[in-house]
């Protein structure tokens, strides 16, 4: 396909950089194997991948993160925050319950706001409706998460919050404000 000739190595760097960049932009972290497969699929000469990665490291702000099985993933810090990569890894590690708990507590503490539960259906959490239902059921009985409580806005949207960081009345108000109040006050 492509004619690489003497400019071969330049193109390869550029293509690998784009491969990682576009994946990161798309919310995906990639393994070394995936990068190698990409290079092979492009029918490019076998080259030392780590050498290429080293050469594009600063341009991409190339970062790595490991999952619980010791696999290493790459992403571009220009395109993806460490927080986002961290969530992807925790989902891969099936650390969902704690991920939800930590996220809710952090949001209740910091913003402060209750968390709408369907956020966990969105990327990077990507829970199916059934999975989310199971997780929320588990949350409400697990003693580790006794501080997590539910509320809902008048339009039916369900929120979860940590009563370590906000009272019920406060969570109720904020849920209603997020869903209804702010749209009535544009």
């Amino acid at each position: 396909m492509g004619d690489y000739m003497d400019e071969n190595i330049d193109y390869l760097q550029e293509d690998v950089a784009d491969f990682i960049t576009l994946n990161s932009r798309d919310g995906k972290i990639v393994t070394l194997e995936e990068i190698e497969t990409f290079i092979n699929n492009e029918e490019k000469d076998p080259t030392d991948v780590t050498e290429i990665l080293e050469s594009i490291k600063s341009e991409l702000d190339l970062k790595t993160i490991d999952d619980s099985e010791g696999n290493t993933f790459y992403y571009s810090g220009n395109e993806m925050t460490d927080k986002y990569a961290g969530i992807i890894i925790r989902v891969k590690n099936k650390d969902i319950l704690k991920l939800i708990g930590d996220t809710v507590r952090e949001e209740s503490r910091r913003y402060p706001r209750p968390t709408y539960v369907t956020m966990f259906n969105l990327p990077p959490y990507n829970l199916t409706e059934g999975e989310l239902e199971d997780m929320l059921a588990e949350l409400s009985i697990d003693s580790e998460y006794r501080d997590l409580k539910f509320t809902h806005a008048s339009n039916g949207t369900v929120f979860v919050y940590s009563n370590k960081h906000m009272s019920k009345g406060y969570a109720d108000y904020l849920a209603e404000w997020i869903e209804v109040g702010q749209d009535e006050n544009p």
């Binding site: 396909m1 004619d3 293509d15």
Partner: peptide
């Protein structure tokens, strides 16, 4: 150029 190259165009 990049797009042309990746679509199999030979310069």
């Amino acid at each position: 150029k990049k797009a042309m190259r990746r679509n199999g165009y030979r310069f």
